[in-house]
């Protein structure tokens, strides 16, 4: 299924290499990966067994550049060819926009080719895709081997839908790009036919169908800049060392009604998940409640000063001086107690 993203001015298509086991699907992808310029390709990822047999799929993204003003990206997948892995084959085929069927040209592999092609038809239909209409290219691989079937015979037995065919020797790279190029062309022609801005003008596009493009201002060509994350690089120990103790006891049991109002910095320092962190904890409410708690702390401290007879030593602690001042100015007269600061 094609994804069209106007925000990124991007089109994503999925192409799948299908065929019997050991016919050369993974080799096709490896050649594409090897020969494509670094700027256009992504990593080749394989989910394979230890013996390098494809277990789930091989995958690589290939960016082809601008087509009709849209950046075009193909995601290339292979399926596991072995009969046993039909369930995973179906998953990979899901939403495919085009298929390359890689056949092994050796005569003793003909039955496997036929079985695999029938399996492809069944699986396509099961996914709601029509083998008659999906862009498909057939590749006759291993043409360098001494004993291979005649191309006409392969065509007769496998090419049910008159798809374009290519001879290939995937291990040397021969025929790999012509196959992919043809499929890319067929997929893009189909897309252009369905979604072209002026389909009637497109020679390769055919007649317009089912949609009436309305004139609309062009979307901004530049995608939105990615929001800059605020990931703090400092080590965990440092993060935890910075205390913000008021966060934990204040967690509200209910959600905030307007979470958009939260500060952008989503990673408050000192947020310790070590205790009380197993259950969902909505954002603590800030503001009035914090001031209240601060006041209670001040009062408690002041009480402690009075009760414990602290009168002198705390003077040396600079951080407590505002507290002492507050006590002297505001609380001492009210409470009738002595000053927490040492008398002159």
């Amino acid at each position: 299924m094609v994804q069209i993203n106007f925000a990124k001015r991007e089109i994503n298509c999925k192409l799948v290499y299908y065929g019997p086991g050991l016919s050369g699907k993974t080799t096709n992808l490896e050649v594409v990966h090897k020969k494509a310029p670094a700027s256009k390709k992504g990593e080749l990822t394989s989910i394979a067994t230890e013996g390098d047999r494809t277990l789930f799929f091989d995958y690589m993204p290939l960016e082809l550049g601008k087509v009709g003003g849209m950046n075009t990206k193909f995601q290339l997948y292979t399926v596991p060819g072995q009969v046993y892995y039909n369930a995973t084959r179906k998953l990979v085929l899901q939403g495919a926009d085009g298929v390359v069927f890689v056949a092994d040209s050796q005569p003793d592999k003909m039955d496997e080719n036929i079985e695999s092609f029938q399996n492809l038809e069944e699986n396509l239909r099961e996914q709601g895709l029509q083998p008659e209409t999906i862009p498909m290219v057939l590749q006759w691989n291993k043409r360098d081997l001494p004993n291979v079937c005649d191309v006409g015979e392969l065509d007769k037995k496998l090419n049910k839908y008159s798809s374009p065919t290519f001879e290939a020797v995937a291990v040397t790279g021969e025929g790999v790009f012509p196959t992919l190029k043809k499929l890319a062309q067929m997929v893009l022609e189909k897309l252009n036919k369905e979604y072209g801005l002026n389909p009637e003008k497109n020679k390769g596009g055919g007649a317009p169908e089912a949609k009436k493009p309305e004139p609309k201002p062009e979307p901004k060509p530049e995608p939105k800049p990615e929001p800059k994350p605020e990931r703090k690089p400092e080590p965990v120990a440092e993060r935890r060392a910075e205390p913000k103790p008021e966060r934990k006891p204040e967690r509200k049991p209910e959600r905030k009604p307007e979470p958009e109002a939260l500060p952008k910095d989503r990673r408050p320092k000192g947020y310790d998940m070590g205790s009380g962190g197993r259950s969902p904890q909505p954002e603590p409410k800030k503001g009035g409640k914090g001031v209240m708690i601060l006041l209670v702390l001040i009062l408690a401290l002041a009480g402690a000063f009075i009760a414990g007879g602290y009168t002198g030593k705390l003077n040396d602690v600079p951080a407590l001086q505002p507290l002492q001042k507050f006590y002297n100015d505001k609380l001492a007269p009210t409470l009738g107690g002595g000053s927490a600061t040492q008398g002159e």
Binding site: G68, N192, Y195, G196, L197, N198, P199, N202, G204, E214
Partner: peptide, 8 residues
Amino acid sequence: KQGVFEPM
């Protein structure tokens, strides 16, 4: 809302 490709 709009065509995807510019004319080719």
